[in-house]
Simulated scan of single mutants.
Amino acid sequence: MVSFAQRVQGAIYGTAYGDAMGAVVEKMTYSEIKEKYGRVETTQTKWWKADWPEAARQGRMRGQGIITDDTLMTLALMNVYVTERRHLDAYDMANEFVKEIAFRPTVYSGIRPGSAHYGSIVLSREAYFQSACAREL
């Protein structure tokens, strides 16, 4: 039988992998995706803007397994659930979620915002699940 912790783990990995794959084609039309990639079937896909000058892509980099703020926000929200251990309300969002995204350091698998590997998909089991699932969600 699949445990609740395993289901949570699957949801997090599904979010992160889907985000990493989808980030490559974000803002592209279906026709543009079809023309450029055919299908995106791996996290190791090169981003269509990767060769643009850094200023033109606003310092961002996608593709090659890099996640976006969507995954980081999901993890931040999960941290709030772990902290509160109940259904969240607007006050929790205003209080704990703001603290989580604005003031607490983000470290998943030893990766910090601003580092060369920021947003990398290497979310090890130890990095997130020991902190969340070990507290018995």
Rank of each mutant, 00 (worst) to 15 (best):
A90V: 12
T106K: 12
T15M: 07
V107Y: 05
N95V: 09
D89W: 07
G10L: 09
E54R: 04
L88K: 00
V2A: 12
L88M: 03
M61N: 14
A94N: 15
S3H: 02
R62F: 14
S120C: 09
N95W: 13
E41G: 09
E32K: 10
G18L: 04
S31H: 13
F4T: 10
A102I: 06
D51L: 01
M78K: 04
K34W: 08
Y91C: 13
V8K: 03
M1N: 13
F103S: 11
L72M: 11
P113T: 05
A76Y: 02
M73Y: 10
L72E: 12
T68K: 00
G65L: 00
Y128K: 00
G114A: 03
V25C: 14
N79E: 09
E41K: 08
I12Y: 01
A102F: 04
E35H: 15
R104G: 06
R57E: 00
E136F: 12
L88C: 03
V8D: 02
R104P: 06
E96A: 15
R104C: 11
D92N: 13
P113H: 02
E84R: 15
K46A: 11
A55Y: 02
A134Y: 08
T68L: 06
K34Q: 14
A55E: 13
G114F: 03
E100Y: 04
A90W: 12
K46R: 13
C133S: 05
T83H: 11
R57H: 03
G63S: 03
Y91H: 12
E100N: 06
M28I: 07
Y118P: 01
R104S: 12
L123C: 03
R104K: 14
M73V: 08
G110C: 01
V25S: 08
A132H: 10
T83M: 08
I33M: 11
V8L: 14
F97V: 05
G110N: 03
G110D: 04
A23D: 03
H87P: 14
V122T: 15
F97G: 01
Y108M: 14
M21I: 05
S120R: 04
R85P: 00
K46D: 09
T42W: 02
N79W: 05
T106D: 09
V25P: 00
A16T: 07
Q9I: 08
T83Y: 09
K36H: 10
M28C: 04
A94R: 15
Q9W: 05
V122F: 15
G59H: 03
I33F: 00
D19P: 05
M93S: 11
W52Q: 06
Y118N: 11
Q9L: 08
A11C: 13
A134L: 14
T68P: 06
A16Y: 03
R7W: 09
K99F: 11
G38C: 00
M21D: 03
M78T: 07
L123M: 15
E126T: 09
E136T: 09
Q58W: 13
R125N: 15
A55D: 15
A50P: 01
V122M: 15
G114L: 03
V98G: 07
R39I: 09
A134P: 00
R39W: 07
S124K: 06
G114V: 02
K27I: 14
R104W: 10
F4A: 13
A16M: 06
K36G: 00
D92C: 08
R135N: 11
